[in-house]
Amino acid sequence: MRKLIVFYLFTLSIICYADKWTLPSEITATSPDAQYFIKVIPGNNYGKSYSFEGAKINGYNAEASLYKVIGKSKFRLKSKFFLKNPVAPVDIYVNNQGKTITLDNWSNLGYGAIWVIYQTDGKVIKEWGLKDLYSDAEIDKIQRTVSSIWWRCDEPKLDSNTNKFTVKGVLEHEFSLDLSMNTLEARKQKNVCKDSPF
């Protein structure tokens, strides 16, 4: 009987829920002061995605085009560059200085480079993976689905006054990225969000 109970508890601990993602499509984002906007075309490098790992479906990563507004209905291409995302980011933002921020990978929340900052020329300034934000013990507690590890919740906030980008995490975590210094601060915050997206 004891062995049966242990096996039952072990089975519960590794349950993964099913989930469903819509097909990736073009993404756009505008800076708070409307002086920059970015357009992202999805890639087709599926073989580099966690969900398709090992599949011989290799191509190009997602491609971003950053534009600078120079007048009414006028803009010019500032830079064109490939993102770290094999297919597409889940979320993308651009601040008033033209820095691009991406969160997570399409169909693979919590895997790979989950948080990346790019300069206006497309060069990566910094990137973080899940283990940079949570301990191994904490990661084991985060809700999973077949494709993803649901480490965050709610809509991220880009504050143009403080130039800070805030993400609410599970397990009472809150992450604040200072875009002036490119530094990330993690702090404990009660009732930040539910520990499960379900």
Rank of each mutant, 00 (worst) to 15 (best):
Q143A: 10
E174N: 06
E26Y: 10
V124P: 13
R144W: 05
N58D: 12
P42I: 02
I70K: 11
T120M: 07
L4S: 12
V146H: 08
I101E: 03
S135T: 15
D104F: 01
S147N: 11
I38D: 02
K78L: 13
K123F: 07
L171H: 08
W150V: 04
K20D: 15
F10G: 11
S51I: 03
V170K: 02
T166Q: 07
N95R: 03
A186G: 14
A64M: 02
K39Y: 05
K20L: 15
F165N: 02
S180T: 10
L23S: 15
T11W: 09
E63T: 14
L12D: 06
R2Q: 12
Y50R: 05
G47L: 02
T100L: 12
L133F: 10
A29Y: 03
P197I: 03
W115G: 06
S31N: 04
C193R: 00
P42G: 03
A34M: 05
I14V: 15
N182H: 15
L103E: 04
I70L: 11
A113V: 07
Q35P: 00
N95T: 08
N44Q: 04
R2L: 14
N108L: 01
D136T: 06
S147F: 12
R144I: 05
Y8I: 15
I41T: 15
N61A: 13
A186K: 13
A29N: 06
D121H: 06
K72Y: 11
G110T: 01
T22H: 09
T145K: 00
L171E: 07
Y36G: 05
L77G: 07
T22P: 12
F10K: 03
G54D: 02
I38P: 05
T28P: 06
D91Y: 13
V40F: 09
D121F: 06
I5N: 07
A88Y: 04
S49I: 00
W21F: 11
F82E: 01
F7Y: 08
N45Q: 11
H173F: 09
G54W: 00
V146I: 12
K194Q: 09
